[in-house]
Amino acid sequence: MIEMVIEQRRRSLGGGLDVGRVLPFAKRRMVGPFVFFDHMGPLDVAAGAPRELDVRPHPHIGLSTVTYLFSGEIMHRDSVGSEQVVRPQEVNWMTAGSGITHSERFEKARAVGDHLHGIQAWVALPTEYEETAPAFSHHAGADLPQWSEAGVHGQLIAGSAYGLTAGARTHSPLFYAHLDLDAGAFAEVPAGRRERAVYIATGEIEVDGQRHGAGHMLVLDAHTSQLRACERSTVMVLGGEPLGERYLYWNFVSSSKERLEQAAQDWRAGRMKLPDADHDEFIPLPEEPPAQPPAMS
């Protein structure tokens, strides 16, 4: 049974870059530890695009971010010294913990043009790990197990599912996978987690006799275990154990409102280190905290 259907809401990140915001949603703030979910693009960018398209340095606390692309290229730089391009079907996994800053630049797009399409997600950290040391890891190849069977072509992005385990270090039990489905193919939704969802990036699928198209997240009950592709489709399946209430303030996530205020003061006062290779500009703290974070992860 489908407990809820969440339709993406279009949001502008500036510079011509729009995203489909899925989580947080007013009636469903999280799915397991997943507290933020943006569908980026698809967007064709011509060579010579302005720098305003980039996501300038900005801060995070209390979460891990995961960048996953279907197409295009993004350059990541952060305050722990990482400088890493992420390409399709690779993963940049960044744990903010006690605090990190980073930028995301579309350098290839500006140079030669690009077709940008992907997912940005935030995974809240358990309370005991909210102040862990910040870290970054890049994953490709064997770190992201793949399989292909009966018209389902899958890749595990993070966590454990389908008898496989991905390489990124996660701090709570979860799964996150990318499935490409041929028309008519059936796919299993991993069981064993209290909260689960399916996001349709392209195409149309059927669950429990109901059809749903691209841009929709289906939050599932504990019993629904299968979906069918009505046409060639790309879906993300995700889930995990609930962590308890989390508060969001701009790009910060915490179980404590006081910690959010401290993070805001630190950013406003310039106490959070910028990336060494990208410190000439940054996104200032909004004067009024928005209801939902404006920046990508």
Rank of each mutant, 00 (worst) to 15 (best):
M1R: 14
E3F: 04
M4D: 07
Q8M: 12
Q8A: 14
G20F: 02
G20A: 08
R21G: 00
F25V: 02
A26Q: 13
R29M: 11
P33T: 06
F37P: 01
D38Q: 05
L43K: 15
L43N: 06
L53A: 12
S64W: 00
S64H: 03
V66I: 15
F70M: 10
S71V: 06
S71W: 05
S71I: 04
M75W: 12
H76N: 09
H76R: 08
H76C: 06
G81F: 09
G81W: 09
V85C: 09
V85H: 10
N92Q: 14
W93G: 01
G99S: 07
H102F: 10
R105P: 01
F106H: 13
E107P: 02
K108M: 11
R110P: 05
A111D: 15
D114Q: 07
H115P: 05
L116R: 04
Q120F: 04
V123P: 00
A124L: 04
T127H: 11
T127S: 13
T132I: 15
D143V: 11
Q146V: 13
Q146P: 01
E149I: 10
L156E: 01
L156N: 04
G163R: 09
L164Q: 15
L164W: 05
T165D: 08
A166R: 04
R169K: 15
R169D: 12
T170P: 02
P173T: 08
A183W: 12
A183C: 10
F186T: 13
A187D: 05
A187I: 05
E188I: 10
V198F: 04
V198S: 02
A201N: 02
T202S: 13
T202D: 14
G203P: 05
E204G: 04
I205K: 02
E206P: 03
Q210M: 14
R211Y: 07
R211G: 15
R211M: 12
S225T: 14
S225M: 10
Q226I: 10
L227E: 03
R228V: 14
A229T: 07
G240I: 03
P242L: 06
R246K: 14
Y249V: 06
N251G: 02
F252R: 03
F252G: 00
S254E: 06
S255K: 10
K257Q: 15
E258W: 06
E261Y: 03
E261G: 05
D266T: 07
W267T: 04
G270Y: 12
L274V: 03
H279I: 01
E281I: 11
I283R: 05
L285G: 00
P289I: 11
P290F: 07
A291W: 06
P293S: 13
P294I: 08
A295Y: 01
M296P: 01
S297T: 09
S297C: 13
